[in-house]
């Protein structure tokens, strides 16, 4: 599905790369078609006339939800490392990071 300008609504291969997903060509084609449909559908909201409407990031008009600066105990190191695939000296072990 193409939008009015004839441009693709979404580039699945690019999005997959950004999300570190390895998709086969077939999968890319399937998702391209499906996501085009979804994005195209959502694009319908663009047809609404929003002149004079302030953009908002939230549906509710709640603001300034603050927490007082008070420290509390979190998890113990043992609890935290329980799910670690590998650990060493209290650290999560990950593949070597090259900078």
């Amino acid at each position: 599905m193409m939008d009015v300008a004839g441009e693709k609504n979404i580039d699945v291969a690019y999005v997959a790369h950004l999300a570190r997903l390895r998709l086969s060509e077939e999968e890319t084609a399937v998702f391209q078609k499906q996501l085009e449909g979804i994005v195209g559908y959502v694009n319908k909201v663009r047809e609404i006339d929003t002149t004079g409407v302030e953009p908002t990031a939230h549906g509710r008009s709640v603001q300034n939800v603050f927490r007082e600066d008070m420290a509390r105990e979190g998890l113990t190191t043992e609890e935290v490392l329980r799910n670690a695939p590998a650990q060493r000296d209290g650290l999560f072990v990950v593949p070597k990071i090259v900078e």
Binding site: V80, A86, R88, D89, G90, L91, F92, V93, V94, P95, K96, I97
Partner: peptide
């Protein structure tokens, strides 16, 4: 913070 070892790295959160 990342710490680097010979063959892997460690992460301290």
């Amino acid at each position: 913070k990342n710490l680097h070892f010979a063959n892997h790295s460690g992460v301290d959160f």
